[in-house]
Design a protein around this nucleic acid. Sequence first.
RNA 1: GGAGAGAUGGCCGAGUGGUCGAAGGCGCGCGCCUGGAAAGUGCGUAUACCCCAAAAGGGUAUCGAGGGUUCGAAUCCCUCUCUCUCCGCCA
Length: 426
Amino acid sequence: MLQLQALRENPEHIIERLSVKNFPAETIVAEILSLDRNRRETQKNLDDILAQGNQIARSVAQLFKEGKGSEAEGLKQASQELKARSKELTEKLAAMESELDELLVRLPNLPHPKVPLGKHAADNEVVASWGEFPVLPENALPHWELAAKYRLIDFELGAKVTGSGFPFYIGNGARLQRSLIAFFLDRAVDAGYTEYQTPLMVNEDSAYGTGQLPDKEGQMYVATGDNLYLIPTAEVPLTNIFRDTILREEDLPVQICAYSSCFRREAGSYGKDVRGLNRLHQFDKVEIVQVAHPDTSYENLEAMREHVSGLLKALNLPFRIVRLCGGDMSFASAMTYDFEVWSAAQQRWLEVSSVSNFESFQSNRMKLRFRETQGKVRLAHTLNGSALALPRIVAALLENNQTAGGIRIPDALVPYTGFQTIGDSL
RNA sequence: GGAGAGAUGGCCGAGUGGUCGAAGGCGCGCGCCUGGAAAGUGCGUAUACCCCAAAAGGGUAUCGAGGGUUCGAAUCCCUCUCUCUCCGCCA
């Protein structure tokens, strides 16, 4: 969430920036500012009353020490009255604070100045592209048909055992998944990320910390019996590691990564856009996260972009990078690069990674700070990115590398799969 | 799941109703000492909010969390969470 301080200092700037995200903020900002003024006044009153109470307690102690306990009676009476008023004000203050918090939480993060104006994906800015579209054989198949032909993935079986969007991976299909996970993790570790294995369920505080709650509640599966949420991405547990912590400046940037299954309800559409691996309720992903110094976090963002680009190049998948426009960005992000891979049989771009700088938006809510060498405490910046999400990578690998005789495995992956092709022969 | 013990600052650890935001130690920072270092030694070293234009200074809250008793709570009472030990169960 945005810092109240920033709103007080320059509300016009906040409103102007949020307009890039097509978010009308005037009313809510005005409400926040007036509520904030009231809150501070109330707090001042409360503090004064409590200070009087403390003063009385000290006087009483002094009187007892001097053996004049009987003189304390009048003071005790005064203290009782103060207590009643302070209780009332405490409740009022708590109500104001939660109201203020509710309002603040509704404001999205400010987009970086480089973020293009726009409402839809069509307004995103293509900032890089790499590779050439493969020439497919006659009768090229989309990945779901390839998956069935070579018995790599069984969607119907998943639907029977669990539901739509929960496929089984089988034989070389399962092996391919495992290979990609290991490959992505190895590359992340080589790039300086420390590997984690995280819980796949998180509590409510964590879901708030990264912003899944309150507004994206419907995205997550909930274990209602225990009030736990299945993670929609490893970002949630990875980033929440740092909730309520103060790091040392020399520890920055913190670079960590994790493979996890991800669970998303995505109450969504049906049809060819979500066929096969294009959109699932459960999928696998390697996530990279950085906690960065605010002065240099955009350099870290570029480094993450390079890392993800390297993965796609190693897999020889044609891709492009787009900088999301204000309207297409997520609530919490200040700048996001999406990576899209060319899916040759479907003839469309598939989003396989999203790399974002959240600046201090998450860390403000999570109280993730670091201590500067001069001793000052500042909010850190958080960044994350997929490196990478598996299903659409698999989709593109299968489609782009299909030949009349089978599917070629990219060289970089062969040490992991142990096979060079899927299919009868080449 | 049953029984018991515990939770104090970055860490260890004292405190069991009266200036206790909290002794002492370790760590860390800045000095002194030294040719340099170690040792020694002096000082400093939590966070949030609020008042003040800012600095200086001051107020309030926080000893796992929430409530209560009291003029006054780290200390007494209640509830919850977590940790440890023993038993049971278990990949």
